[in-house]
Design a protein around this nucleic acid. Sequence first.
RNA 1: GCGCCGGUAGCUCAGUUGGUUAGAGCAUACGCCUGAUAAGCGUAAGGUCGGCGGUUCGAGUCCGCCCCGGCGCACCA
Length: 981
Amino acid sequence: MTEDAKAAKARYKSTVLLPQTEFSMKGGLTEKEPALQAKWEEEDLYGQIRAARKGGKPWVLHDGPPYANGDAHTGTGMNKILKDMVVKFRTMQGFDSPYVPGWDCHGLPIEHNVLKELGGKKPEEMTSVQLRERCLEYANGYVDKQRGQFKTTGTLGDWQRPYLTTSPEYESNVLRVFRDLFDKGYITRAQRSVHWSWAAQSALAEAELEYEDREDVSIYLRMRARAQVAGVDDVALLIWTTTPWTMPANLAIAVAKDAEYALVEYDRDGKSERTVLAEELREAVLEKSGVTEHKVLKHFRGEALAGVTYSHPLWGSECPVVFADYVTLEDGTGLVHTAPGHGKEDFETGKNHDWFNADRPVCPVSPTGHYYSDDRLREELNLPANHPDDNGWFAFINGKQIWKHNDNVVEKLREQGDLLHSEKFMHSYPHCWRTHTPVIFRATEQWFVNVDHVEAGQTKTLRQRILDEIKNVQWFPAWGEKRISAMVENRPDWCISRQRFWGIPIPGFMDPETGKVCISTQTVDHVVALVAEHGSNVWYDDANWPVDKLLPDAVRPDEFKGRELKKMDDIFDVWFESGSSHRAVMLTNEELKDKFPAGLYLEGDDQHRGWFQVSLILSVATQGVSPFKQCLTSAFVVDENGLKGSKSKGNIWAIDKGVKDLSADLLRLYFASSNTSEPIPVTYDLVRGAGESYRKLRNTFRALVSNLFDFVPDKHAVKYDDLQPLDKWALSQCQRVIDEVTGSWERYEFHTATRALVHFANVTLSSQYIDVCKDRLYCEGAESVSRRSAQTAYWVIADVLMRLMTPVLVHTTEEMWQHIPRWPGTPDSVHLAPWPTAAGEGKRDTALDSRFGLLFKLKAESDRVLDRLRKEKVIGKGYDAHVTLGVNAELMKQLATFGPPETLEPELAEALNVSRVKLDGASDHAALQEFEPATDVKGLFVKVQALEDTACVRCFRRTGDVGSVKEHAFLCTRCAGVVDG
RNA sequence: GCGCCGGUAGCUCAGUUGGUUAGAGCAUACGCCUGAUAAGCGUAAGGUCGGCGGUUCGAGUCCGCCCCGGCGCACCA
């Protein structure tokens, strides 16, 4: 370029309309986000949104309460972010969509930690009320902490007035749910064998069990029959058990009526023995036991064992053989050790045979997992005071811890000579989810919700009605329906009582003299009113709330009037509390109470067994319907190795730390790009990886908006019909993205929506559309229709892009909102803006879609050849090139439908980003060496030549007409015209 | 043990009712531009679609079996 040309270029540069914007290329998110959040809070953005949507169709995501303990980590943080994204999406769609966050504040872990702070147990001088106050303080501390952590993610909601399960209002509503259940006959108090955590000293529900691997010992034990069996003397019955510690509580042996049994004879330790076991298991068991030779004396069916009794191996008492249909021949011996105090089925068997004295199964194990001591042990075992104890078993187990004593029991049985065989084995065994200790079955008196009860006026059991309701809910992903149905079909009655104090009391009273429980609708109602006013502490405040004041005679059933009653000390399972949130929150909160049932519950998929299920049970029983219309679950957060995050492994971090280091928008974008139906790996590096998409979205928006510096929508927007074809095409593409993204959001497929957006920004906009529009925007006259046409499309697209990103990039789009030209009267925050449904006046135009689809295919072919010539140093930029497209007749015909050559060729030059395009439909291109066959377009050949023409110093194109306007020797005709205005 | 989900380029994932030569982003390599510039554009390389068998004119897609990973249920005595 000559010196003159350089000077001219500098001179004309000011006439080029280069992009301008204050919207920075870099996000600087970690600095900007806290300031923006402070502004939102100050201006009460959430309140503004609420006011703006008032009267809209309601659509509520009801928050499942996280537990008020520990940090809000990536998992809980993700859950809040997903919820916020959905609420923002629905809000933008125009729904009235309040978000009331809540916390689960009662329960064992908090009680546990508070006790730990106090040195392991409640100090003598401390009252229950004082201890409960410590628990409340503890929970409230974590509510505050987690609230702060959640807020850093940019999640909007009623953070000032969250629901807490400890508030008197909440507590009283939990009791109202109980009252309704009681009223309808769902509540039973009964002796049953339940899962018991001796470490937590409490009954546990199914949802509170976790299966962990554990080594145990299994024993094959001979129980000596008292009389002949099948006409043979001195016979033993062989049982198998994996819980030797339950032997003291053995009451019977169960056998299968129809199974075939064998009576075998063999030598052991030099003595001859006769033993009964299932024929099918005979070989395996005897071989395992080291019996090398044996002979079968008899075969008979289980039925033949009717009336047989045996001597208890510890106590010597006479015990029966009974029949039970749960006896299988998969494991063991076909003769089942039955201890009603320590097994569900055993308990049923015991109950059916009416073995329980005074309604008490034999259960010699205390709440802490020790055998009882002395008189109590004797009483629990139903042993008379003068019972002979020749082998010293009584002293042997007296007061011992069952697990520690397990092996000792085995050894003593071995010494006694009754042990045929024992072996260690690994199995998965239910553990307490909080203390991670193995649970036991323990027969106790508990409160239950009877899921197979048919209430008055109904024809179906509650279980069936829940299953019906499940079908009315939309489950995302769809397999959730199967999972929860299977759980409900198979679940036992719900044991809702816990023997702790950090919770809501089950409002039962007892007459200690008669053992009768005093409870009625009126008594419960009375307590509900007191709890609503004073909180559940009334139950524990003996000084101010003695029983007579808690339950005056006036509200008691007649038989309890004037009696000395005692408050019972069970509390509700925390799941009963959180499961009542539909009542305590959805049906109570000022903003929510007319919006029941909720539109959506959104939690981790472990809640099928937890919150979803208990919510369904309680809501169907008391309201007759599911408390939610849709249910969305996400998989768990894992680390880069696919391992579940845990604090001890150090592969999980507090969400606010992640926000501080990486920014909320990046985390949100990362979660929005993840397939939440599969385990979601979360590491700093992976989240940083989302930065690529973030930059692309941000810079694409910036490219669009920087070309709108002189564009005022209500003055300059071009009517749809007057837009240039390429711009109409861009709007059509934009419309497609709107439809795609909206559809994905409706199905809660966040990652599909994000992918569509990123692809649109990356390919359609950045690589295709924006690249091609530059000449029009920079070089055409400021007010020219062709430039205003492009700007109109840019504006619409930038606006749509921004809005479609808003539920995810809540901070970034708010910043964008400040930099995009707006119509007068638009709201101050993007979060008050509506969700886009149409790209301006634009619409899908399939003719344009395929027309430009073909042009960009031609571009790809030309690019390939251009690139080769670039590498050969023949050309540099595209404007140095002249592209000849050799096309066959068919392709020419197709191209001709877009317009005559004199308009088509310039349009192609624009689309291909070169100075000149010539269409050649006449030659035999395949025969011509300078033409290169296309790889993806049939009938196309490409020839590229360097242009000798001088480049216009203003628009850089080599159009062949530079200098044709005398006054502007260095400009092309178009630019000269523009400069002269 | 039963069931569900997944296995596609080095990494993260798309692949619609079975239909041309299996796609995208990132990363890599090589270039261009210097008027989106701590940006932007282009090109290339990279795949036995977990394995085997079957149905079909045609299979990443449908069927069967198997292997690997994850999850759920059950493991009771």
